[in-house]
Each structure stands twice: as structure tokens, then as C-alpha cells.
């Protein structure tokens, strides 16, 4: 027990700075994932074949490659191609684009979960395509996608630790813990605190999702 408190007291500034970087990384990645993911989902259900094909290629590429491979391509690959990208940009951008492929698939399934009859009813009431989407389909689709999006967000928070362990070497929470382990050899208490840090984020994400679920729940 004493060992645990000593570990956090001795290494607080380092662990806190790692935690802060992890928070920033997952926040930026989450925004990118939602924005790009929605755009790709719209491409996937677009009426034009070319647009659908673009969406499909995006999903297959970003979902089909290991995150580590994407990270190295986005950092080392681009740098070798002459793009002076930094690890601080490449990390969250790659994690966001990777997660976006999953977001797109979740949104697409949510879209198809809304019965065809809903759309037909809306159109026959005189709403146009856009209005049907905004007022009838999306609100219902949103409700069904909250739980899978919450799982995805939790996975994304944990995936963020891959960035620091890769060639990008950013000093996120897990990395800071590892650096301090290297200096002291005291692995268990430091990794315990790193675990606590990740749990605050993953549990936090789950709690927010639960609230959203309750708010948009339909009592039947």
C-alpha cells in the first residue's frame, strides 16, 4: 500500500503530463472519428455508385490495416515522402481516421435499422429527402448507435496507448509510466496508476454514453 502512494507521489508530474497528453489525443481523435465517420457513412449510403465505392474503399483500408501499420505509414511514410509531419499531429490524426472507419460502419447499420416504412411514410407526408433524413431517420438511428459508439470510444481510448509505444514515441500516460519504471524498476505500482488513469477515461466515456441512452430512450 505504502509503495502505491509513494509511486504516485514521486512521479506525479510525469504521470499527470502523460495523462493530459492521452486526454488531448483521445479528444482530438474522437472529434475526427465522428466528423469523418459521419461523412464516410453518408458516402456509403449515397445514391450514386461512385460515392458508395469511395466510402467502401475508405472503410476497407482504414479498418483492414493494423493501427500500428497505419501509424508508421502516416509518420515515417509521409516523412520519407517529404511531408514534414510531426508525431504530435500524426498520432491523433491516424487514430481518428482509423476509428472513423468503424464509426462509419456503426452509423450505416444504425441507418438501416430504421425501417423502410418510416422513410416511405415521411416522404408520403410531403417531407423531402433532406427533411426525412434530419427529422425522421437520423434521430432514430442515433438512438440505436449509442451503445456501439460507446464501445468503440472505449476501444479508441485504449488504442491511444499504441501511439506512444510505436516509432512515434509520444509521451502519453502508459509511456510516462514506462519511462518511470525504467528509471526505478518499480513496475507494479506505476502500471497500477496508469491503469487507474485509463479507467477514469474509459469509465467516464461509458457513463456519458449511459446518460445519452437514457435521455434519448423511447418508452414503449
Amino acid at each position: 500500500m505504502v509503495e502505491l502512494w509513494e509511486a504516485i507521489a514521486d512521479n506525479f508530474p510525469e504521470l499527470a503530463s502523460g495523462y493530459w497528453l492521452t486526454v488531448r489525443t483521445v479528444t482530438i481523435s474522437f472529434v475526427i472519428a465522428l466528423v469523418i465517420g459521419t461523412a464516410v457513412a453518408l458516402l456509403r449510403i449515397a445514391p450514386t455508385r461512385v460515392l458508395r465505392a469511395i466510402g467502401t474503399v475508405y472503410v476497407e483500408v482504414f479498418r483492414g490495416l493494423p493501427l500500428l501499420v497505419l501509424l508508421i505509414m502516416a509518420f515515417s511514410g509521409l516523412r520519407r515522402a517529404g511531408v514534414p509531419i510531426t508525431a504530435t499531429v500524426a498520432g491523433p490524426a491516424t487514430l481518428g481516421l482509423y476509428t472513423a472507419a468503424y464509426v462509419a460502419e456503426i452509423l450505416r447499420s444504425g441507418f438501416f435499422a430504421v425501417g423502410k416504412g418510416q422513410r416511405e411514410a415521411s416522404l408520403s407526408l410531403g417531407l423531402d429527402g433532406g427533411q426525412t433524413m434530419r427529422h425522421v431517420v437520423l434521430p432514430q438511428a442515433f438512438r440505436t448507435v449509442i451503445p456501439p459508439l460507446a464501445s468503440l470510444t472505449v476501444a479508441m481510448i485504449k488504442n491511444s496507448a499504441i501511439i506512444g509505444g510505436s516509432l512515434l514515441a509520444t509521451q502519453d500516460l502508459l509511456k510516462e509510466a514506462r519511462i518511470e519504471v525504467g528509471a526505478s524498476g518499480n513496475a507494479t505500482p506505476l502500471f497500477f496508476w496508469a491503469a487507474v488513469g485509463y479507467l477514469t477515461l474509459t469509465v467516464g466515456a461509458t457513463v456519458i454514453a449511459r446518460r445519452l441512452e437514457t435521455r434519448y430512450a423511447v418508452r414503449r
Partner: peptide, 11 residues
């Protein structure tokens, strides 16, 4: 080996 890669690509 990661350090060598990064030195070679200038990061």
C-alpha cells in the same frame, strides 16, 4: 532501431 529510423528520416 527506431532511433536509427527516425534519424535517417530526419524526425
Amino acid at each position: 532501431s527506431g532511433c536509427l529510423t527516425r534519424l535517417q528520416e530526419g524526425s
